[in-house]
Each structure stands twice: as C-alpha cells, then as structure tokens.
Design a protein around this nucleic acid. Structure first.
Lengths: 339, 339
DNA sequence: TGCGTTTTCGAAATCGATTAAGTAACTACG
DNA sequence: CGTAGTTACTTAATCGATTTCGAAAACGCA
C-alpha cells in the first residue's frame, strides 16, 4: 500500500505538506499542491481510512441496527429497501455502512458498546424492539442516532405516515361503497397503534360504526395468523364486505382462506394490504394497498444522520413524516348502488 | 472513552503491561494481569477497533459485495438470507460486516480500492456480474475473497448444488408420472447453465426426449417473463404436463397466467419453483420447489473467509458444494397409471 | 558468593494520517 | 533600511493500541 510517506519522499517534501496538499489547505503553493496530487494519483494513493479515523475521531462509518429475527429483519422487503436506500445515500456523503449487533466475537457487548468499539459516527435504528434496554441505552448515549418508525425524545426520527396511509385506504374503500370494513392489525407496536387509531378516527369521520368483532389481532408478516383471523371474520353472522390486512405478505394467509371457502376476490370479498411490496403488484388481481416509501425513508434517515454528525451545533431534533401512496389495485369491489 | 492509558495510570503500570495483560501474554504476572483485567472491566474499557486495526493491519472487518440492482439484490430473499447468515457467522469470529460498493463519497473508487480503503480483511462476493472487470480485479487482488455461486481459479467458492437440485426436482416430477416436462430458465448465468445442463442430463438418464419448445428463456425474479413463457408453453399443440420455473417468485407470473386461462394447479398443470423462499410455503397449494440452503451457504462462506484470513499459510482454495432439499409441496399432480 | 537463567515489567518505536506551532525567506512600506 | 506581514513549508506531537528489545529483580545452583 502506498502511504503519504511514499509520496512525500518522491516529491521531496514533508508528510505534512502532502497531507495538506491532498486536503486542499491554503498554505501550500498551488503548483506544489498540483504536483503532489499528480504524483499521488500516479502512485495509486488511497488514504487509509483507519489511520484517518484514529486521528480525527471520525470513522465515516454509520452503524445500522436491524433485528436478526427472521420475522421482520432483512427478509422483510420493507426493511431491505430501507437498508439499500440508507446505504446509497450514506455513500453519497462518503459514509460506509456497518451492521451493529450484540456479541461481536466472544466478548459480550451491547449495541452501544459495539458502536463505540467500531467508532461509528452515528447509528440508524429500525425494526427493533424499541423498549429493549440496550436500544434505549444506545439512543440516550453520545452517539447520534436516527430511528425509523419510532420517536424518542430529543432524537431525530423518520416516520412512515401510517395515520395518513390508513386514512387514505379507509376512505378509498368507503368511496367504493363499503361500510362493513374489518381490520386485522399487527402486534401492539406504535405502528399498529397509529394505524388502529387512524382506522377508528377515519371511520368515525365517515360516520361508520365498526363492531368490535371487525377488529382482529394478527401478526405482521405472518400469513397463518391472518388466515385464522380471516376465518373468524368469515364466521361472523354479519360478515364484513372488506378486510384490511396487517401487510401485503400476511394477506397471503387471508387469500388462501378465502380460496378455501370458495370465495373469490374481489367478487365475494374485498381486501387490501399495506406496504406495497413487489409481490402485491404481481398478484392477480393486483392487491389494493398503501405503498410505504421505503426509499425516501432510508434516504431521509441517512441525510438526517449525516447532518447531525457534520453539523452538531446547529442541529435540532426533527421528526420527518414520509408520505406513501395508495396503490388502488383490483381487490376492492365497487359496491355502490347502481354500479 | 476509557483508553489503555487510563487503566495504566490507575494500576500504576505501563501501557505495555496493560496491553499484554489484556491480551493474555505470558510475560505478565498472573496476579497483576488479573488485577488489570478487573480494573479494565470496572472502568468499562473497550478496545478501540480503529487503533488496533491501524497497528495490526487487520481490521476484523469483512466486506460484502452485493449488487444494488433491485432485481436480485437484497430484495431477493435468497440473498438477504445469505447476508444475514454471513453476518452471524462472521460475528461469531469477531468480524463485522461492511458493504463494499463503487464511489464512496465523491471519489470514484472501484471495489478493490474501496475494500483497501476500509482495510477489509476479506470480501464475500455474491449476486454480482462476475464478468465485471472491477469484480475480476478484486478477485485477483491481494485481498482474500470467497465467491458465492461462481468459481474463480485459485479462489475459494461456496456453491449451491444446482446440478443435484435440478436432478432431484426432475426425478421427483418424473416419479409422479410426468414425461412432458417444460423448463423456463433464467438469464444465461453460470447458475442457469448448470441447471439447464442438469435438466437435460437427468431427462436423458430417464430416457426422456424433451422437445426444444419445452425450454423457454425467462428471467430470474421476474413474474412477467415467466407469465409470457407460460403462455407460449400453453399455446403449444403438445402441451407439457409440468412446468419448472426459474424461481419461486417468478412462478407467480405463471400462476397468474394459468389462472387467467382457467387452469388449476395441479389438476390441469403441475408446476415447481426453485429457491424455497417463505412465499412458496405459504401459498396454497404449497409450491413444490427445491430449497437452497442459504443459511449454510452464508455460514460456510464466512467460515472459509475467516480461515483464509487467519491461516493464510495452510490455506488451499476450496469449492464447497452446499446441498439443498426438495420441498415436495402440492403442485405436482400424480399422473401415474392407476392413481 | 557468583554467575547464569527466568520472571516481570517498561521505554520507545510503530501503524498512517492530521495539525498546531514554528521557521525561513520573501515582500511591503513608511 | 528596518520592521511587520505574508507565503510556503517543516517539525513534532498526537490519536490508541501493540510489540521488540532491554533491564532490573528474583531465583537457581554449585
């Protein structure tokens, strides 16, 4: 590896001069600087990120904290899209991405310690149990963090607009004439809480009274749970005409159950998902769903974090709400009178 | 952050002694070492990975190279499973994972330069265009690499056993009485080449003559292409009784086309996928497919790489073949006489 | 006691880069 | 001409850890 010392010898200047020339300091003669840069290029010089990090106390490395659980980790398209987007935006600003987890090697570390150990300049947190003490410790530490879909006091967060999304979905369904709308929700997370509240609020605004039985507890990313919930809904005396699922993937369970009972979508039952993953748009009929803008979320999270890292003085914690968009699909039947 | 110097002062010993005590060198008195370790723990000492990396020339950081294309990057479950598995195994050995890409920040870098810049001890390469000069440069460099599903000379590789997988799939289908088996394959990659060759070889061994028209060119992870290929197959005078798809996800396109033509699976057409992603096993009927053991592949790749990094002398390039397993599913109809 | 050996620890160099402080040499100006 | 200011560069310290070499102390044995 060619180092700054090699260049210095070759140019008959000190290492300091090379460093300054390469970093564009003003106290180096323009010609000298140009020559040094030229030689550096010829020799194929690359700065050593490690040495730089040690000296500057900045690693230009961003940690990402995603859970490992198969259920909602990288296997979930929503999160893999976010990750990809975070990565791209971070790289545009000169940052690399490193995964943060517990227990690196034999030493037991918590998330904070791992991030410190790796000198991460900041951490992006998504898809974790936000009540985990280790997560809370990290968020309350000296390391800048940005969370996704969860707000911590005095910390920046990027949020998918679940309230608007659910409202839009319900209004769309209502617009197609549906009055009996069931909702299978996910685990009791803050996301679920928001969607549920928005569901109730929107229904109330529309003058709908939703029976208790139309609200079913399911699980994110779990077709089996959705299948069972669907079965319970179909067993009701007064069946809903439309079922909203926790997410697109778990809808598959509902799809199977409907098929099993000989009901066709959307003729006999209207359905909608949430997320707008690739699968939802290749199914036929195309699934009506609300697409979360994972790309924008990842991008925004990375931007926010870089901002905190590079301009800590002027930084003020912000919660950025990212809107999604309705994918109308073909799974909501129009049951208005006269249609 | 508490450094080795802090501990040294607190213990009234030199930094050298602390370092040695912490690393278990033999020239430190057992009691002294124990005391130092005790104090280090009390003070919450964590080694600085950056400083260590600079001095030792080893970063304990593994780069992973995945393409960014939406088609087959992280959004593909096969690769996200591999990544997760690589990460877990790497962490067990004390390594972290960093993404490698071109152009970090403003400086244009190729993969090799990026890996060098970050002092990666090794790189795991998957899901890329293996003919890309930048990839080839990396593979032929001084940086240890392990490739997935592709072999470079004098380099270690971990391979999914596509030959055995396809053979097993074909034999299973044959065992159910099918003689007219069509195969929609993916892009002309080495994986496709192997599956195709294995398909032909197995058919020959079974005494089957497969008409040219039964071999269709599709695209991985692309339901649309599979849908079109399916349509062409269904338009044949002498239709196949079974269609093998490039992968589980792209099968969705075939599923839609069959549905559109009023054909039911497996009554009117038998089908099989490849990969064994979650989706395949929540569909009803359950998809017959060959599950690639992505977890084992990621684990093995990480193990191999750590081996190269830590024991470069005794290392010999190896190609490890990872077997998968047939998921019989319910999409192959038994059409044997008398059944 | 004397000399070689072992044990235990420290001083100092090192990894590659950055930067504060210092130093020539040169310029400007009254 | 002398002083102040500018320009262009160097010296040396520094980041946090590791390691070679050396040295003092303790020990062993005749």
């Amino acid at each position: 590896m060619v180092t700054i010392t090699d260049i210095a010898q070759r140019c008959n200047v000190s290492r300091a001069t090379v460093s300054k020339a390469l970093n564009g300091h003003s106290d180096i003669n323009a010609e000298t600087a140009a020559h040094i840069r030229q030689v550096a290029k010829e020799m194929g010089y690359l700065p050593n990120a490690t040495a730089r990090a040690l000296k500057l106390g900045r690693s230009h490395n961003i940690g990402v904290l995603f859970v490992d659980k198969t259920s909602s980790g990288l296997s979930h398209e929503y999160f893999s899209r976010i990750l990809e987007s975070v990565k791209q935006e971070a790289e545009r600003s000169g940052y690399d991405i490193t995964f943060i987890s517990r227990d690196i090697g034999t030493l037991p570390m918590d998330y904070y310690e791992h991030a410190k150990y790796r000198n991460c300049d900041g951490v992006i947190i998504a898809s974790v149990d936000f009540t985990d003490p280790a997560v809370i410790k990290l968020v309350n530490s000296d390391i800048p963090t940005v969370t996704l879909d969860y707000v911590f006091d005095s910390r920046s967060a990027v949020l998918s607009d679940n309230v608007a999304g659910m409202a839009e979905l319900v209004r769309f369904v209502y617009g197609k004439g549906h009055r009996k709308i069931a909702f299978i929700h996910g685990e009791p997370t803050s996301v679920t809480q928001k969607r549920l509240a928005s569901f109730h609020k929107t229904c109330a605004e529309l003058g709908l009274t939703i029976p208790e039985a139309y609200i079913e507890a399911g699980t994110f990313h779990d077709p089996k749970a959705s299948g069972l919930a669907t079965r319970r809904l179909l067993a009701l005396k007064d069946r809903p005409t439309c079922i909203l699922y926790p997410d697109d993937f778990s809808f598959i369970g509902g799809m199977n159950e409907l098929e099993r009972q000989g009901l066709s979508i959307p003729k006999d039952m209207s359905v909608a998902g949430y997320d707008g993953i690739l699968l939802s748009q290749v199914l036929r009929p195309r699934l009506t769903t609300y697409r979360q803008d994972a790309e924008a979320m990842g991008r925004e999270a990375a931007k926010q974090l870089v901002e905190i890292i590079e301009r800590p003085k002027e930084w003020i914690p912000r919660q950025v709400m990212i809107p999604g968009s309705l994918l109308t699909g073909d799974t909501i039947r129009d049951i208005r009178q006269g249609f």
